[in-house]
Design a protein around this nucleic acid. Sequence first.
DNA 1: GTGGATGCAAACCATTTGCACGCCA
DNA 2: TGGCGTGCAAATGGTTTGCATCCAC
Lengths: 145, 145
Amino acid sequence: MSENVLDDLLRKNGLKVTKGRKEVLKLMEEKKDLPMKAEQVYDLIPRSVCASLSTVYRILNQLSEKGLLKSMLYQNGIMYYQYDSGEHRHYIVCSKCGKVAALENCPMDAFDNYIRKDTGFDITGHIFELTGICPDCKEHAESRE
Amino acid sequence: MSENVLDDLLRKNGLKVTKGRKEVLKLMEEKKDLPMKAEQVYDLIPRSVCASLSTVYRILNQLSEKGLLKSMLYQNGIMYYQYDSGEHRHYIVCSKCGKVAALENCPMDAFDNYIRKDTGFDITGHIFELTGICPDCKEHAESRE
DNA sequence: GTGGATGCAAACCATTTGCACGCCA
DNA sequence: TGGCGTGCAAATGGTTTGCATCCAC
């Protein structure tokens, strides 16, 4: 995605175009399949562009509020951020090596109606956190760890 | 569930039977359909039985380690604990009034195989957080809020 | 009696915030 | 130029921990 598109994306959402916001958004777009925590983002950005972790937090939260990023709190108590391409997706994370794979479909979609009938609730959202062992780790289970 | 059964449950799991542990486990068993945070548990227990919040945390964590309770970190950053009757269950929480309803089945079960084929991962666990609007709140949407 | 359990206060740690300075529109 | 953005350090808040005391076994 070109620089200009990202700039426009920022402007369109009422955010001033600054070095920091551009860099964070570009990075998140490049890594769109990888949920990242603030510290990882901070480490991947030159100090000349953004010198403080708190600014990274501020930028990530602004982008999330505007819907450019999704954020979710993992069970380890750390917030992960991810570029929101608009598609509704879930990921599975390998408990051993941390590898991430995307699910093609959201298993929940098929159950919206079922749950409405079962409980009478209208579903407004869901969070899904999957853990598993990836094929590589399964294969090397005996040699590693 | 009688006092003795709870005592046995504690002993069987290598935990000394103390006033605090008994009371917490009893309470959690009574409210088995309601995920509760440490502070709520603390508020529902007489100070004479357990005087400090940190002890409640310690007890809740011990019971969780032994598998007597389930714990999950909600998106609001607060840990909720719940009696683990052994059944695998998910709950939906009303965003307006906080009412909790249990799902009869786990939607994920049907998808284990699908996900294995899709990603090659063996699934070792999943966290599910549903939010929605309960029938009551839906009905009173216009009068309240 | 003794080792684990508890109470209290201090520590933790990811995240947020206050304030002074600096930069984009 | 004026107001928003940023850096730094201090605050926050749920949770954990160190240590002295107390209780279950």
